[in-house]
Simulated assay, not measured.
Amino acid sequence: MDSRKSFLQGIGLRLLSAFLITAMSAAVHGVAGSVPIGQIMFWRSILALIPICLYMMWLGEFPKALKTKHPMLHVTRGGFGAFSMAMSFLSLAYLPVANAQALAYLAPILVLPLAAIMLNEKLTKAIFLAVTLGFAGVLLLLWEAFELPGESAWIGVSAGLAYAFTMAFVRVHTKTMTLTESASTIAFYFAIVAAIIGLATLPFGWVALDQTLFIWLVFAGLIGGIAHIVSNEAVARAPVSALAPFDFTGLVWALGFDLILFSAVPGALGFAGVFTITAAALIVTFIGAKPKK
């Protein structure tokens, strides 16, 4: 395949991936007020196995990709990943999709201090600027939450921060796993662990699903799995560094879903926080960290 054509296909797939991930977040936001987080986690994870397994079969990796020499690494990654998923869904339950999406952008920023500790990477002045901007954006979101009645916004922001911190660790942990495990294997066992953890919340009370709620959950699960596949295919066609900036188109989709589906938009401080965090994440994307020699 022509390299330019492959590169353009990679960009198109990354744009599609950003849309699908944001659409999944909007679906979760739509049901999170009525369905317990554990129940959402179960359906999101168990249904994602369908496209993931089909993808593994298409690549010729099924069932050999199910074999692993490091099962405990998958348990650890799955446990932290499931916790980050729960925090993400909790954030989506209490915040507009755009605000929750902006808090998720903190994850690649927070990866860098962890990478400096765990992977021996060097941080530049630009990275320190990005981290400062990122936390300034969080303060703006917190300030807006402080002005809102009740505690719902505080819960959403706190959950979003917990998601970002946990996901930062998960990304570094996953990077070390890719030395011995394929992306499909990691995705498969993460979905299994997250589904089991979600199912474990059944005794604490699940709700009966009507047709609308069930459709939303099926949509979230299948779209989440497909988004993972599309993202993998994008990386197979173009460099990760070239694709990363297109992830931020998800913010545009998030604002659109908030307005069209939920008739909600962030306030002035919320907008400022969203775009400040996005600017910080863009700095990280374009500059990154330099390995120590």
Rank of each mutant, 00 (worst) to 15 (best):
L20P: 01
A26S: 14
A27E: 13
A27H: 05
I37G: 03
M41Y: 06
L47F: 03
I50T: 11
P51I: 03
Y55V: 02
Y55F: 08
M57P: 00
W58I: 07
P63F: 04
H70L: 12
M72G: 06
R77P: 01
G79C: 13
G81P: 00
M87I: 06
A93M: 14
A107G: 15
I109Q: 13
L110G: 11
E121V: 07
E121W: 04
L123P: 15
K125G: 10
F128K: 08
V131W: 01
V131F: 05
F135G: 03
A136M: 15
S152R: 10
S152D: 10
L161R: 10
A164F: 10
M167D: 07
M167F: 09
A168D: 12
R171M: 10
K175N: 03
K175Q: 12
T180A: 12
I192M: 10
I197S: 11
P203M: 15
G205T: 00
Q211V: 12
Q211S: 14
W216L: 02
F219V: 00
L222G: 06
L222W: 03
G225R: 00
V230P: 00
N232D: 00
N232T: 07
V235C: 04
V235D: 05
V235K: 14
A236P: 00
A238Q: 06
A238C: 12
V240H: 13
L243Y: 03
T249Y: 07
L261K: 06
F271Y: 13
F271Q: 08
I277F: 01
A280H: 02
V284Y: 04
K290Y: 08
